[in-house]
Amino acid sequence: MSTDTLRKSAPASSVTQTAAGALIAAVHTAAARINFTAAIAVTDQGGHLKAFDRADNAPFLTAEVALDKAWTAASFHIPTHRWNDYLANPRVAPLAGHSRLMAVGGGYPTIENGRCIGGLGIAGGSYEQDQ
């Protein structure tokens, strides 16, 4: 194969700042409705922070947890709550030692037209509230 025809890059879509802000606003509205305060992180498709907000009364640890949930979701394009089942498999269990992997509810890939464009991480409530 000639290097003239070899594709050297792939297009990568990313969540926009406007969409990230809208996600954060929607989560704060939903969190208030079910009575908890949240930290919300939105990452791009590579897991890099795009937008973040932490409610005044949300514990400070929620900031790091929300970012790691968004990172985990963007990394494998699956919700973070699904990791519990995966980590039960001894062949996958060693990944539990990865410092950023969050195997709890509240992390979701942001999908547009079938492609992952980022991650959303929510922390501050119970497992069910974050999810």
Rank of each mutant, 00 (worst) to 15 (best):
G118F: 02
A10I: 15
T80D: 12
D53M: 13
K8R: 15
G47C: 05
S75E: 10
H48C: 08
W83M: 07
A20E: 01
G47Q: 00
Q129A: 05
P79M: 06
A25G: 06
W83K: 05
P109D: 07
G107I: 05
G97C: 06
R7I: 15
I24D: 00
H81Y: 15
L101Y: 07
A30Y: 12
P90F: 04
L101N: 13
Q129N: 03
A22T: 09
D85G: 09
A73Q: 07
A25L: 08
A41M: 07
G97L: 03
A88Y: 04
A12F: 15
L87V: 09
T62V: 05
H48T: 08
G114S: 08
R82H: 15
N84C: 10
A38N: 11
D53N: 13
V27Q: 10
L95F: 15
V27H: 09
A93E: 12
A55E: 04
K8Y: 13
C116W: 04
D44Y: 04
Y86D: 07
D53Y: 14
R100M: 11
P109I: 03
I122M: 08
T37R: 11
G47F: 03
T5M: 13
D44A: 04
G106K: 05
L120H: 06
Y108V: 00
P79H: 11
A38K: 09
F36S: 00
R7K: 15
A38M: 12
L49D: 00
